[in-house]
Design a protein around this nucleic acid. Structure first.
Lengths: 218, 218
DNA sequence: GGTACAATACAAAGCAGTTGGTATTTTATA
DNA sequence: TATAAAATACCAACTGCTTTGTATTGTACC
C-alpha cells in the first residue's frame, strides 16, 4: 500500500500565463484545456498583473512572455525566482534571439519556447519543466548568411555576407560595441559595415533601420 | 415548401488560416472549434502554402497574417482577389499601423483584425465579413490625446496628455526639434517630456521606444 | 597580373537622444 | 486656498550612431 501512491498523477499541473496578446492567451488556454493533467488557473496581460496574481495563487508553472509592457518578462522572472523559487518559469518569445535565450538561462528560467512552437513541443516542454528539467532551444551553430538565403526580398539590396550578418545582430538590438565584441572585430569595422548597410538601404537613423527590419520581417 | 429553405443555416462557414506562428494557429483553431457555425478546413504556415491550398479548397473565409515570410499577406491577398474574388479575406496583424489598414482596404481585403483582439471581436468580425460586410478598425479622427482614450492598455502607465501627444509624434518619427517647432515648445520641454515617457515605460533608447510603439499598436 | 570588391581598421566632427539635475508657472482639486 | 500634479524651461555630461574621410589586406575573376 505504501508504494502505491498514485495520487500525484491526479494532481494537476497548475499554470499561469502572462502575455499581453489576449488572443494568444485565449488560444493557449483552449489548447491546454484538452490536457487532463494541465490546468490554467489564471492569466495576466502584463507583468504587473502577473506579480499581483502571485499574492493569491501559487502555480507550479508560469508561462511568461518576454515582451510585455511595463514590467517585462525578465523582471517578473527575477522576482518570481527571488520570492517563489519553487515556481517553474518558461519564457515565451516571438523571435529566435540567442541573447534572450542566454539571458533566460542565466536569470534562472526553467525553459524557453518560441511562440511558433508546435503544440507537441509546448506540451512536452511544459511537462518536462514541471518535472524538474531545464528546456531551452537548441542553439544553431552558424548564424551568418542565413538571412540572404531565406529572404529573397533582401537580395535586391545586395548586402554582403558580413553586412547581412550584422543586420541579424542589429535586429536583436545589439550596440555596435556589442557586435564588435561578439564578432571579435574593431568597433570601427562594425561602424563601417553599418554605414554601408544604411547607405544601401537608404536609411538615415537607427529608428528607421529598426522600422525597416520590422516592416519587412527580416 | 419553397420558402422553407432553412438548410443554409446548416452550412458551416469554412475558414482557412494562414500564419507562420503555429502556436497562434493552433490556438485560433481551438478557439474556433467551439463555434458550431465555423469550421477551420485547413491552415497554412506561409503565403506559398496558402496559395497552394486554394487549388484544392474553396473556403468562404481566409484569415491572413500580414507578416509572413516569403510571399507575405498582401501578395496572397492580391492573388486571392484576382483568382477567387468570392473568397472573403480578413487580414491579421500584430501591429496597429494605419498605413497597413489603409493598404488592406485598397487592396480589397474584407476585414482587418489585430492579433490582440478579443474572442468576441474576432467572431463578430468573422461572421460580419462572411455576411458580406467590410470590417476595419476604427481610425481615430483627432491625433492628440486620443491615444489614452482609445487604448486602455496605455492607461496603466499613466502618461499625461502631453506625453501621450508626444508619443504620437514620436511614432511618426519626428525629432525632438521638429516636435518642439510643431507644438511651439522649447526643445528642452520636449526632452523633459520624452525623458518622463522613457521612465514611465521603462525604456532605454529610441529604438526600444520605437519597438514598444510598434509592438503594442500605439 | 591587374581590376574590383569585400572585409578590415582608424579618426574626427557632429548630431540626436539620455540622464540627472533644478526651477518656474499653470491647473486641477481636496 | 493650500497642495499636488502637469507642463514648461534650462543645463551639462554622456552615450551611441552618423558622416566623411583614408588606408591596408585578402580574394575572386578575367
Amino acid at each position: 500500500m505504501v508504494n502505491l501512491k498514485m495520487e500525484n498523477t491526479l494532481e494537476k499541473l497548475s499554470v499561469i500565463i502572462a502575455d499581453d496578446h489576449t488572443l494568444f492567451i485565449n488560444g493557449l488556454r483552449m489548447l491546454l484545456q484538452g490536457e487532463p493533467d494541465i490546468e490554467v488557473v489564471s492569466v495576466a496581460a502584463n507583468g504587473k498583473e502577473m506579480l499581483h496574481l502571485l499574492h493569491t495563487h501559487t502555480p507550479n508553472l508560469v508561462l511568461l512572455d518576454i515582451n510585455m509592457p511595463g514590467i517585462n518578462g525578465f523582471e517578473v522572472l527575477k522576482r518570481i525566482k527571488d520570492y517563489y523559487p519553487k515556481i517553474k518559469v518558461i519564457m515565451l518569445s516571438t523571435y529566435n534571439e540567442e541573447h534572450l535565450i542566454e539571458k533566460a538561462k542565466t536569470e534562472g528560467a526553467n525553459g524557453y519556447l518560441f511562440k511558433n512552437a508546435e503544440k507537441a513541443e509546448l506540451l512536452s516542454v511544459m511537462r518536462s519543466v514541471a518535472g524538474g528539467q531545464l528546456c531551452f532551444p537548441y542553439k544553431q551553430p552558424a548564424v551568418s548568411s542565413s538571412l540572404n538565403e531565406t529572404d529573397p526580398f533582401l537580395k535586391q539590396f545586395q548586402l554582403t555576407k558580413r553586412e547581412t550578418e550584422l543586420l541579424q545582430f542589429i535586429k536583436q538590438n545589439f550596440t555596435n560595441q556589442q557586435m564588435a565584441d561578439h564578432l571579435h572585430l574593431s568597433i570601427y569595422t562594425v561602424e563601417t559595415h553599418r554605414k554601408n548597410i544604411m547607405q544601401k538601404l537608404n536609411l538615415k537613423n537607427p529608428v528607421e533601420l529598426n522600422r525597416f527590419i520590422i516592416q519587412y520581417n527580416l
